[in-house]
Design a protein around this nucleic acid. Structure first.
Lengths: 110, 110
DNA sequence: CCGAGTACCTTGTTACGCAAGGTTCTGGGT
DNA sequence: ACCCAGAACCTTGCGTAACAAGGTACTCGG
């Protein structure tokens, strides 16, 4: 496959994106996929999101409950735990630090 | 090893950081390591930088020449090729897109 | 009762970040 | 002459993540 180097930039930011989304309120899996896939700069797929949700569940940063759907199979809703909110805050701070550092570095090379 | 989740945020951004640094002018390996290690938000080590430089060399994004050092063994200076400058510009654009998308997403959850 | 649509998740590949280890070269001290 | 400290280079091995592709299950309409 051709190497899409810009893909690399997305790496490491995905988890924060999911935490940020769930910090706004609970969502079910496909919904998370849909919202993140609709952002061209992120372009996430189900194959990325579901394993990530599993990992966050196992880490105790989110939990989930099944709820009926009016139009199809039941949906698994995910929401942040207290640990999840803490992780979200910590990662957001780390993000800001990296963002500012990189922006400063790129500014020099204009 | 304990999981440093903030490490993940650095992922994918390292290459752009090196390209950005070399876009400012040529540098030798240890110098790149030093400058990037001194940024707490990046905290890169030699074990990360050298393999990355090798990869960039092989990809033709940078090239290198040996130069004498006044104080020790010779130094290998790296600089961007035309392809490297193009990659730098492309990745910078991708970075801006991801950065803005993520910032917008995080803003919602305040 | 079967196909279309919705929703869930797993498997396999590839590649990266990083710690740890290892080599080579230079100059200074004895 | 010799050795050692230090500067500079790079490689190996491990863990983990992103993603494509594939697979399962439930619901409803015809």
């Amino acid at each position: 496959m051709a190497e899409d180097r810009t893909t690399q930039i997305r790496r490491g930011v995905v988890e924060l994106a999911v935490l940020g989304l769930l910090a706004q309120g609970e969502r079910y899996g496909s919904q998370v996929v849909e919202e993140l896939a609709s952002q061209p700069a992120l372009a996430l797929t189900a194959g990325t999101v579901y394993p990530l949700l599993s990992r966050l569940l196992k880490a105790g940063l989110i939990d989930s409950t099944w709820q009926e759907s009016p139009v199809g199979p039941p949906r698994k809703y995910y929401r942040l735990t207290p640990d999840g909110f803490a992780a979200h805050a910590a990662q957001r701070d780390a993000w800001v630090a990296v963002r500012d550092t990189l922006d400063a570095l790129l500014k020099e090379s204009r």
